[in-house]
């Protein structure tokens, strides 16, 4: 049976619930698309149900303190077929009653963990690479273009770091933004067309000056630098702009 869900995490958890209630050992989960492809399998439209989702999440939490978080991060990759790798891993966890991520001998676990790590890694990079420009007193803005949709993983960090400021972090790849004010933060959608941010010349120049002189000329190692700051991230990095 193919289970179509509405591309929300609660929807996916509901699908897991339905699969377990139906004792369906050959289930496949897919996000609902506009034109449902022809399939020889039967199909089931999952109706997202928060109560069912909560029950599944509660069960997954019991397997280990980080299991749910790791599954969630892997899901954020929105890789093709990620739901089915997650289903295999959840099956391994629920059947053993133990943390599935400790059972890396299973190919699915190994794969899901590496996807989960990639997403975490990029979220971590965004903590490093966001560069705010000051637009007005106490108003800041930054642009990022991460490969994965990691805004949810970084919002709290920046909000708690600058609790009294107003700022926006625009994700120009997924057309979403973090809006943060002293009252709290949330994610909002962005239009396709976003005007470039104005320059913040004085401190951008000072930062570039510092960036240049702090390199030790007798140990230049551009290959190592590229390993830590891949070229794809440099577009929005003040210090790499001329």
């Amino acid at each position: 049976m193919v289970y179509y869900y509405d591309s929300t995490f609660d929807g996916l958890m509901t699908a897991i619930f339905d699969i377990y209630s139906a004792k369906d050992n050959e289930a496949i989960i897919q996000p609902t698309t506009e034109n449902v492809p022809f399939t020889l399998y039967g199909s089931h439209n999952v109706i997202t149900n928060v109560a069912k989702s909560d029950r599944v999440q509660k069960g997954l939490r019991k397997l280990g303190p980080r299991v749910l978080e790791q599954l969630y991060k892997a899901w954020l990759s929105h890789d093709d077929g990620i739901e089915n790798i997650m289903l295999s891993v959840i099956r391994i966890g629920l059947s053993s009653g133990k943390d599935p991520f400790e059972q890396r001998t299973h190919e699915a676990v190994c794969k899901l963990d590496s996807i989960q790590r990639k997403v975490s890694r990029e979220a971590e990079r965004m903590l490093q690479f966001v560069r705010f420009k000051k637009l007005a007193e106490n108003l800041y803005a930054a642009d990022i273009e991460p490969h994965f949709d990691v805004l949810e993983l970084i919002g709290e960090h920046f909000h708690s770091r600058f609790p009294q400021s107003n700022f926006i972090i625009r994700n120009l790849r997924h057309y979403k933004a973090i809006l943060s004010t002293p009252a709290g933060w949330h994610i909002t959608s962005l239009p396709r067309d976003n005007p470039p941010l104005p320059k913040d010349a004085e401190y951008e120049n000072l930062w570039r000056t510092y960036f240049k002189i702090i390199a030790n000329e007798s140990r230049i190692n551009l290959k190592l630098q590229r390993q830590f700051v891949p070229l794809k991230y440099r577009k929005h990095l003040t210090e790499f702009q001329i």
């Binding site: 490093q128 708690s160 600058f162 609790p163 702090i214 190592l224 630098q225 700051v229």
Partner: peptide, 23 residues
């Protein structure tokens, strides 16, 4: 809460200079 900034337990590197060392 009354100002700005916090320290991150694991530390955060913000850039890497041309010598490959973190800033």
């Amino acid at each position: 809460k009354d100002g700005f900034g916090n320290a991150h337990m694991a530390g955060i590197c913000h850039s890497w200079a041309a010598d490959g060392r973190c800033i």
